[in-house]
Measured scan of single mutants.
Amino acid sequence: ATVHVKGVTYHFDNPEQAEKFAKRMAKELNGEVHVDGNTWHVD
C-alpha cells in the first residue's frame, strides 16, 4: 500500500498500517484522506 502526503510517498507492506498512517497524518495536517484502491492520498 502507498500513502501520498503533500507530494511525499510512503510505502507500507501492511494496508492497515497505511490506513492508520494516512488518517494520523490527515489529523496532524488538518487534511483530508482519499483512498484509491491500495493508494491513500492526504491533501
Rank of each mutant, 00 (worst) to 15 (best):
A26T: 03
E32A: 12
Y10S: 02
W40M: 06
H11F: 14
G37L: 04
N38P: 05
K20E: 15
G31L: 15
N30I: 04
E32K: 14
A18N: 00
L29W: 04
A26F: 02
N38M: 07
F21W: 05
V33H: 04
F21P: 00
V35L: 12
P15Q: 11
F12C: 05
A26I: 02
A22S: 03
T39N: 15
V8A: 08
P15W: 11
F12V: 01
G31N: 03
E16T: 10
A22N: 00
E16Y: 09
G7A: 04
D43C: 15
H4N: 11
P15E: 08
A18Q: 00
W40N: 02
N38H: 07
A1C: 10
R24A: 14
Y10P: 00
V35N: 13
K27R: 11
E19Y: 06
G31E: 04
E16G: 09
H34C: 13
A22G: 02
H34G: 04
H34Q: 06
G7T: 04
V33L: 12
H4I: 15
H41R: 08
H11V: 10
E19W: 05
A26N: 02
D36I: 14
L29Q: 04
T2M: 11
D36A: 09
E28M: 13
A22Q: 01
G37H: 04
T9H: 08
K20H: 11
T9L: 12
E32S: 15
A1P: 11
G37S: 03
K23N: 12
D13L: 08
N14C: 10
W40F: 14
H11S: 07
H4C: 09
N38Q: 07
R24S: 12
H11L: 10
H41F: 15
T2Y: 14
F21L: 03
E28H: 09
V35R: 15
H34I: 08
N38V: 05
H34P: 01
W40L: 07
E16I: 11
D43W: 14
T39E: 15
E32P: 04
V5Y: 06
T39F: 09
K23I: 13
R24T: 11
V8E: 10
D13E: 12
K27V: 11
V33F: 09
E32I: 14
N30Y: 06
V35T: 08
V35D: 03
E32L: 13
D13Y: 06
R24E: 14
K23R: 13
F21T: 02
A1D: 05
V8W: 08
G7P: 02
V35C: 07
T2W: 14
A26R: 02
W40I: 08
D43Y: 15
G7D: 07
L29H: 05
D43A: 10
Y10W: 06
A1E: 04
G37V: 03
H41K: 06
Q17V: 09
T39V: 15
N30S: 08
V35I: 09
R24W: 12
T9K: 10
A18G: 04
T9P: 06
W40R: 03
Y10K: 03
H11P: 05
G31S: 08
A1V: 10
E32Y: 14
K6H: 12
A18T: 00
K6C: 15
V3L: 01
V42N: 02
E28W: 11
F12T: 00
D36H: 15
V33A: 14
K6G: 14
D36Q: 11
K27H: 10
H41Q: 06
E19Q: 06
G7I: 02
H4R: 13
E28R: 10
E32Q: 14
D36V: 13
K27I: 12
H4K: 13
K27S: 10
A22L: 02
G37Y: 03
A1R: 05
H11A: 07
V42T: 02
V3I: 02
P15A: 14
H41V: 15
W40P: 02
D43Q: 11
P15K: 11
E16N: 08
K20Q: 13
H41T: 13
Y10H: 06
A22H: 00
V35A: 10
H34D: 04
A22V: 03
H11G: 04
H4L: 14
N38W: 08
L29G: 04
H4W: 13
N14W: 07
Y10I: 06
T39K: 14
H11K: 08
R24K: 14
H4D: 06
T39L: 06
T39Y: 09
P15I: 11
K6A: 13
M25N: 03
V5C: 08
H41G: 03
T2A: 09
F12H: 01
V5G: 02
F12Q: 00
W40S: 03
E28Q: 10
V5R: 02
V3D: 00
M25Q: 05
Q17C: 14
V33M: 07
V35H: 13
Y10A: 02
D43V: 15
K20M: 12
E19V: 05
N14A: 08
L29T: 06
N30L: 07
H11R: 08
E19P: 01
V3S: 00
D13W: 06
A22Y: 01
F12R: 00
V35E: 05
V35Q: 15
K23A: 09
N30P: 05
G31I: 05
T39R: 15
K27A: 12
D43L: 15
V8F: 10
A22E: 01
N14G: 07
T2R: 13
V42P: 02
M25D: 00
K20L: 12
A22K: 01
E19H: 05
N38K: 06
D13H: 07
V3N: 00
E16H: 09
T9W: 14
P15L: 11
A1M: 08
G31K: 05
H34Y: 13
N38I: 05
E32F: 14
Q17A: 14
Y10E: 01
G31V: 09
T9M: 12
A18R: 01
V8P: 01
K27L: 13
L29N: 04
N38A: 06
N38G: 06
E16F: 09
T2H: 12
E28T: 07
V5M: 06
E19F: 05
H4M: 13
K6L: 15
T9F: 11
E19C: 07
Q17M: 12
